[in-house]
Write a protein that binds this DNA or RNA. Structure first.
Length: 292
DNA sequence: ACCCAGGTGGCTT
DNA sequence: AAGCCACATGGG
């Protein structure tokens, strides 16, 4: 049974930017990739949905979750115009990035899904991360009841696997999904998650196998909504080198500086910058190459 | 055949 | 603390 939820008068939201800025990996365009205002299909936890925008109304056709759940998922009670303004006031050179990624929102994602997703992200690229996660969900996640009705072809949406199902997985079977050396991290981390419960701090996250400083920061930002977290990946290294002259290897220095410079908005700043430099086309790439 | 991608763990200086 | 290197995989 599909329920339709309409949230009116939403601001600062662009579905393409929200779903393709690199914070999540399982939402995909449903159809008409060229069409303006396209619809996305995916899942948040065990709730499948098709998401679209009609003017300033956010339309959620879903198998579950009430209005409050989706308001929280899309972070709709946060004023992103105010955030962008404050970022630009504090750091004028970020304006191109906030302009390009205007409409990004930091989703409130499921913690376990975020942990596994960003363990898979290490030394990997986004298209392959998406493939890996889809394979993982098809093999270890259950079909979301009623999700067949969301898609014209009647294909179901799979829920993200539970910690129990991944903890019970055979490492060889995980590797067969092309998860590579990350297979053992996934199993061990799932076991520990089951045993110890949800990690709630940086220290606890760093104790998980396959979670280092960068992945921990992604989990804090995307899974725990700690907006002061500033993940430093290979792209952000280039950016911080370009903007402030940091040595490429000095990830810790970059992170410390950014957290001081942007404060509680560091996570937003990181996401606008990452998305702009990665997807913003020739203009952003030129800026990166100009000084080095 | 190399280099890179939302890096980490482990070992050696 | 800092510097290597292996690790799986697939695309350019």
């Amino acid at each position: 049974m599909i329920k339709k939820i309409v949230i009116e008068k939403v601001r600062d939201i662009d579905l393409t930017h929200v779903f393709e800025c690199g914070q999540c990996f399982r939402w995909v365009p449903l159809e008409d990739p060229e069409e303006d205002g396209r619809r996305y299909i995916g899942a948040a936890g065990d709730k499948a949905a098709v998401i679209s925008l009609d003017g300033d109304s956010l339309i959620i056709e879903t198998t579950g979750g009430d209005r409050d759940f989706w308001r929280d998922y899309f972070d709709l009670d946060t004023d992103y115009s105010a955030i962008k303004d404050e970022l630009v006031r504090n750091e004028p050179s970020i304006k191109a990035a906030t302009g390009y990624g205007s409409g990004i929102r930091i989703l409130n994602q499921d913690l376990f899904e975020t942990i596994i997703s960003f363990i898979i992200s290490q030394n990997n690229n986004i298209p392959r991360i998406r493939k890996n996660l889809e394979a993982l969900c098809r093999s270890y996640g259950s079909i979301i009841e009623g999700s067949e009705a969301l898609r014209p072809d009647g294909e179901p949406v799979y829920a993200f696997p539970s910690a129990a199902s991944l903890a019970a997985a055979d490492v060889g079977d995980l590797a067969a999904l092309r998860l590579g050396y990350r297979s053992k991290y996934i199993k061990k981390t799932s076991e520990r998650f089951l045993e110890k419960g949800c990690p709630a701090s940086r220290e606890e996250l760093l104790q998980l196998e396959g979670v280092g400083p960068k992945v921990a920061n992604c989990i804090m930002l995307f899974g725990l909504h700690d907006t002061g977290a500033f993940p430093v990946d290979t792209w952000v290294k280039h950016i911080m080198n370009d903007m402030y002259g940091f040595e490429e290897k000095d990830a810790a220095g970059m992170q410390a500086f950014a957290c001081g410079h942007f404060g509680r908005l560091a996570g937003y700043a990181q996401q606008y910058l990452f998305y702009y430099y990665r997807d913003g086309g020739p203009a952003s790439q030129k800026m990166l190459n100009s000084s080095h």
